[in-house]
Each structure stands twice: as C-alpha cells, then as structure tokens.
C-alpha cells in the first residue's frame, strides 16, 4: 500500500496514450490499491488514472460517493455505481451535453468549464478481468470521462473552449 507521487503538468508522460492491460495479475491489483490510496490522499478527488502516477496502462478508478454523501443539502445530479475500477474502459454510448467545472490533481493551479456527455454507457473490466457494463449520468459520468481522457493523454485543459472558461485557483504571481 502506498500513496504514489502524482505527475503534474507539463510532465510529458501525461500526454502519452496508455497501453491496454493484458495481464490481470497481482501487480495490477496492487496498482488499483495504490491508486485508491493516492486518490483518497488528494483533497476531494473523485477519481484518478494510472498515467497520473506515471503508469502508462489503461486503468482508472472513480468514486463520487464522497461528493454525494457530503453534508451539502444540494448535491450535483449524478448516478452512483459505487467504487469503480475501470480497466481498458470504452464508452459505447453517450447522450446529452452539459457544461461543468473541473479541476485535476495533475493541474494543481486551475479549474475550468468543460462540456461532457451527460450520460455514458461504459464497458470495462475490473482488476480481476471480469467485464461489466455501466450506465452513468451527471457528475459520475463527468468523472469517468475526465479519467478516461487521461488514458488517451488528454487533460481537461485540452477541452476548455475559451480562456474565459479557465480559472486560476491559487495565488497570482
């Protein structure tokens, strides 16, 4: 178990396309455990992808539970499929478009508005190689699309449509 170091922009490894997983072995299962620890270590993170910790494999995890369970009375519209392990995920259907604000553990200083499909149907394997299909909407759908972008070497910065939609989060220097 380990909290892994998160690569930050402009580390070139964040722009590489990750390779598919072919062996569902102990090292994959360890990677999933480490990703979970690393995600929980990042303030308010609802997902993380292997390329963010320098592992060029098509593995991501998503869990929007903490946001949906928070003490806020008005929560974002979202499905909730629990703790998701997405190995070699593919989006096989997408529907609707919605704008929403995103930040990234790998882009610490910015948030930005990004258009995403409102709902997606995803096919993926888990860490034991069991294939499944999920239908996700709202915030969970956004989280999955954000993490799957990392597997293709894309950051939310690539999808921000105008600089007016990009906001610096921290101190101006």
């Amino acid at each position: 178990m380990a909290v892994l170091q998160i690569l930050t922009y402009p580390d070139s490894r964040l722009f590489d396309v990750a390779r598919p997983v072919t062996e569902f072995d102990a090292s994959l299962q360890q990677l999933v455990v480490d990703l979970q620890e690393t995600m929980l270590d990042g303030a308010g993170a609802v997902g993380i992808a292997a390329p963010q910790v320098g592992v060029g494999r098509r593995v991501a995890i998503v869990d929007v539970g903490p946001v949906l369970d928070g003490d806020k009375k008005r929560k974002p519209k979202s499905s909730y499929n629990g703790f998701l392990v997405l190995v070699n995920p593919e989006i096989i259907e997408r529907d609707g478009e919605v704008n929403g604000r995103e930040g990234c553990l790998s882009v610490p200083d910015y948030t930005g508005n990004v258009l995403r499909a409102d709902s997606v149907r995803v096919r993926a394997s888990d860490q034991l190689g069991r294939e499944k299909e999920l239908v996700c909407s709202g915030f969970e759908s956004r989280a999955i699309q954000h993490e799957m972008d990392h597997l293709d070497g894309k950051l939310f910065l690539d999808r921000v449509i105008s600089s007016r939609e990009l906001f610096r989060r921290k101190t101006y220097r």
Binding site: A43, G44, V46, V62, P76, G100, R101, A143
Partner: peptide, 8 residues
C-alpha cells in the same frame, strides 16, 4: 445552480 468542481 450550485457549482461542484470535479477533482480527478
């Protein structure tokens, strides 16, 4: 509309 920033 509340704005929830997704962090991932």
């Amino acid at each position: 509309e509340p704005i929830e920033v997704l962090m991932g």
